[in-house]
Amino acid sequence: MRSATDKRIPAATAAGGNDSMRRYLAEFIGTFVLVLGGVGAAVLAGDRIGFLGVSFAFGLSLLAMVYAIGPISGCHVNPAVTVGLSLAGKFENKHILGYIVAQCLGAVLAAGVVLLIAKGVPGGYQASVAGLGSNGYGLASPEGYGAGAAFLAEVALTFLLVLTVLGATDAKAPVGFAGIAIGLVLTLIHLVGIPVTNTSVNPARSLGPAVFAGGQALTQLWMFIIAPMLGAGLAAAVYRSVFSPAGAITARTAERSLDAERAERVAQDRSHTRSPV
């Protein structure tokens, strides 16, 4: 005969599994939106909105997703952010693989959607020729920057991104403002990095277009995996040593509103529902 504790175990396990799948699905959707918004702006409207417009497209896409899916998954939408949060003790290691797989799948699907739309232009569109917003250095760099400069830029800019995510979601940071800081810093990063590499700071974002562009985009993909991961590791090390976090709090928790705020919203909603018309 099973005890009451034994009966609760399957239910708890199922709840944990459902929570994990919701988080992975949220990361899939968030990365899809980031790549669709950012790469889509570069490919479909880049000649009209320029570097500034593309930079804001990436930043606004991330800002929106922080508030849309942040309470569910923490809105990493970037393997480098996932690894950085893990190294800083703000993310559970058991979810790393699931997050990264979801992010990569979301990026590839979004890049495929952008390609399908781009092919509708008169004369068609060839990803292997036009690049589909892929990242690169040397001849593949928008301004011809070499491998050394590109690698340094990706490390430094990813460091800035991940450090901002860590600081904005710290237990001592103001609640509810993380999305603004993170979205704006990604805009700034693209303003700096687009002429150098088309700005990656995100291995999933680089993978999506590279799958369809092939050629140099695939052969140079290694840089846009290694450099962002190195930048994320440096950010985590600085966060641990300089910021001296008071306690571990996950990004998902930090991007939720306070319990008191949620309770007040529910109470107000119920009072409006019950009030006579």
Results as ranks from 00 to 15, higher is better:
S55R: 02
R22C: 11
R262P: 12
K94P: 07
K90N: 10
A251T: 02
D6E: 05
E27Q: 05
A251G: 11
A178V: 13
P276W: 02
I100S: 04
A102R: 07
A15S: 14
L85Y: 11
T253C: 08
G124Q: 08
P10A: 01
A237G: 14
T253Y: 02
V83M: 13
I117H: 05
L62V: 14
N18P: 08
S61K: 09
P71H: 03
L116Y: 06
H76R: 15
A149N: 15
L87H: 15
Y24K: 01
A210R: 14
T219F: 11
F58E: 04
Y125L: 14
A57C: 09
G50R: 00
A68K: 04
G84A: 12
N198E: 02
S200E: 01
T31W: 03
H190I: 11
G16H: 06
Y137N: 05
I100H: 09
V35H: 00
P174R: 08
V121C: 10
D269Y: 08
G233H: 04
S275F: 10
A64E: 12
A140R: 12
F56Q: 05
S141C: 09
I69A: 03
T273L: 12
R48K: 08
A251K: 01
N135I: 06
G138T: 08
P122R: 06
A14S: 15
D47H: 03
A41T: 00
A153G: 12
L63F: 12
I180C: 11
T13S: 12
L207T: 07
L157H: 03
Q216E: 15
G131H: 03
